[in-house]
């Protein structure tokens, strides 16, 4: 049980589960839960003949994600009502967007917080409308608050006092300090309106937002799920739209995300067998292999493995998000707070 390959293989090729014994299934389920992919896996295995002991586990996952889907749409509707008097675009992001448009990427996807994007100049107004409608600040810490406002790509998270659900209000897709700075204005302009009056990103932007999350934004924690999003989005968008690859490539250049897109495509093709445009994905690099190892760092007990690679990625992820001086300041304040708490 050295890495998460059995999970990747089961998502890619459901028939691969046929040889699993009891222990193999238990490992697979633990890995899938740890990577927040159990719902997607359960849907992929719907037609497979699985052991009687496993079927209820998968059925539970399907039911749990049905509820997640419903709650996500409900939260979106709650913001629709709260922001009924706001004239700008409210763009649903990530999982909520996938289920709002009924994309394959939304099937069985776990959805936690609601993420929405609005124009940067409207943040204050949106913030006040949400506070009026029952959302409250989560973090009472003034340093964190200041940090969020100055450097991040979202308001400090808000939580609804009755429903206990969080909302992240973004004004761009990556922290302002991150090296690539996707063009938020262009994303808003291209957004597509839903029947409810809210918006989702246009297909190319939606893919690039998922890419930004995977490669530029995080330490690749939960990366297999992000990569699965990318795989599913690309399969659906590229099918029957010959212009998709051209538009996503152009758009990636405009957002400064071309190398990130290329890397994500190579990883998706390597792990999930995603059909990608060779010219957009470019040639493989040695560092792809390190990324792949990091993505697969999960053992059969559901533990993250390869601590060292993880640490390298964590530091790297902070460097990507913040210029070095700011990073030092951030770590120093965090350290002092840690001391104070000890």
């Amino acid at each position: 049980m050295s890495n998460a390959w059995p999970l990747v293989r089961a998502l890619r090729d459901p028939a691969s589960v046929r040889g699993l014994d009891g222990a193999g299934w238990t490992n697979l389920v633990s890995m899938a839960r740890a990577e927040s992919l159990i719902g997607s896996l359960a849907h992929r295995l719907k037609e497979e003949d699985v052991p009687a002991r496993v079927r209820p586990v998968l059925d539970d996952a399907i039911a749990a994600h049905q509820l997640a889907r419903q709650q996500a749409l409900w939260e979106a509707d709650c913001t629709r009502r709260a922001l009924a008097g706001y004239s700008g675009k409210v763009v649903l992001m990530k999982g909520t967007a996938y289920v709002a448009v009924d994309l394959d990427a939304g099937i069985g996807r776990s959805i936690g917080d609601l993420d929405i994007m609005v124009a940067r100049e409207d943040l204050k107004q949106v913030e006040h409308m949400l506070l009026d409608a029952g959302w409250e600040w989560v973090k009472p810490d003034p340093y964190d608050d200041q940090y969020y406002r100055e450097h991040m790509h979202e308001l400090p998270p808000l939580i609804h006092r009755d429903r206990d659900r969080m909302i992240d209000v973004h004004h761009t897709t990556l922290p302002l300090t991150a090296r690539p700075t996707p063009d938020a204005r262009a994303m808003l302009d291209a957004a597509v309106q839903l029947e409810t009056g809210q918006y989702v990103m246009a297909p190319a932007d939606m893919v690039l937002h998922a890419v930004a999350h995977l490669v530029a934004d995080g330490d690749l924690a939960g990366g297999l799920r992000n990569l699965w999003d990318i795989d599913q989005l690309i399969r659906e968008f590229a099918k029957g739209d010959e212009a998709f690859w051209v538009s996503v490539e152009e758009r990636a250049k405009a957002h400064g995300l071309a190398p990130h897109l290329a890397r994500a495509l190579r990883l998706a093709a390597r792990l999930y067998g995603t059909p990608v445009s060779q010219s957009v994905a470019g040639v493989g690099q040695f560092s792809d292999w390190i990324h792949e190892r990091r993505l697969l760092a999960r053992d059969g007990w559901g533990r993250e493995t390869r601590k060292l690679t993880r640490l390298i990625f964590y530091i790297r992820s902070h460097w990507l998000r913040m210029p070095p001086l700011m990073l030092a300041r951030h770590l120093f304040v965090k350290w002092r707070k840690g001391q104070g708490a000890a």
Binding site: G22, W25, V29, V54, P56, W301, G302
Partner: peptide, 12 residues
């Protein structure tokens, strides 16, 4: 004794 489990608990 068949290895199937609904849940894994880890104590580490």
């Amino acid at each position: 004794d068949d290895g199937f489990a609904d849940f894994t608990v880890r104590l580490e």
